[in-house]
């Protein structure tokens, strides 16, 4: 279980997170929605310890993210980055098996390659992709490779940062389906940030709406459309009229 209590984070005078409270149960898929610049990515990076929050507590299974032993803590996470964040200088299979080629999870190279090819197959890529470099792949293929890398070490928790950004609707649908299948299959806890409503409906068990540094609404995805919260309603309908200011 991931629990966030009163999490604050500022960058200079800009207060990005103003007291976020959120609980994600084990095995649950939580999707955090909100407009651009509302602190979704910052929140996710605080959970991972990539950014140190100013106050409040973030715990994973009761263990504070700031005091946990870093290697063991990070070994429990997988993450799909918005742009893929694949390492340009490494072949696809080395990207996927990155964690299996070094550190505490190190395996023999042949075994790591075999696992990488199996994970690539799981995300719908053929083994001949394994020896290509990221620059030789399309955007959709890069997302798939990023997804394969995120699941390669079979983590307990997987984060997805804008998984469908920059993809055409068909490819976005394929990635959404893959994410849902993999999360269910692995029994992993998932935390996704997105402002793509089709992703929300495909991936989420529960949804949290972040606005102005706090969670404005949180509940099951099935109740999202009936919710009366004006912020959530404006966001899911994409209306320019409402409490969320739209720059015209």
């Amino acid at each position: 279980m991931i629990r966030l209590e009163g999490v604050h984070k500022s960058f200079g005078p800009k207060r990005v997170l103003r007291g976020v409270d959120l609980t994600i149960e084990r095995g649950q898929s939580m999707v955090i929605i909100g407009g651009s610049g509302t602190g979704k990515s910052v929140l996710l990076k605080c959970v991972l310890g990539l950014i140190r929050h100013d106050s409040g507590t973030i715990t994973l299974e009761g263990e504070d993210v700031l005091t946990a032993e870093r290697d063991a803590f990070l070994a429990r996470f997988g993450m799909l980055f918005q742009g893929g964040a694949l390492f340009d200088s490494l072949a696809v299979w080395q990207n996927v098996a990155f964690r299996l080629l070094r550190g505490s999870l190190k395996r023999p190279m042949a075994e790591a390659r075999e696992i990488a090819i199996e994970k690539l197959r799981r995300v719908g890529l053929t083994p001949d992709v394994a020896d290509l470099f990221p620059s030789e792949l399309s955007g959709g293929m890069q997302k798939r490779v990023g997804l394969a890398r995120a699941i390669a070490a079979e983590p307990d928790v997987i984060f997805f940062d804008e998984p469908t950004t920059g993809l055409d609707p068909i490819m976005a649908g394929v990635i959404n389906e893959l994410i849902r299948e993999i999360v269910v299959e692995m029994g992993a806890t998932a935390m996704t940030i997105t402002h793509d409503m089709s992703s929300v409906r495909a991936i989420a068990d529960r949804v949290a709406m972040l606005h102005d540094g706090v969670v404005k609404w949180e509940g099951p995805v099935a109740r999202m459309d009936d919710a009366t919260d004006p912020y959530l309603h404006q966001f899911i309908t994409g209306s320019a009229d409402g409490p969320i200011e739209a720059v015209r």
Binding site: K45, L48, L105
Partner: peptide, 15 residues
């Protein structure tokens, strides 16, 4: 690597 989040990816991969 920094602007394309590859440095963050390294950290999440325990490196």
């Amino acid at each position: 690597m920094k602007v394309t989040e590859q440095i963050d990816a390294l950290v999440t991969l325990s490196t």
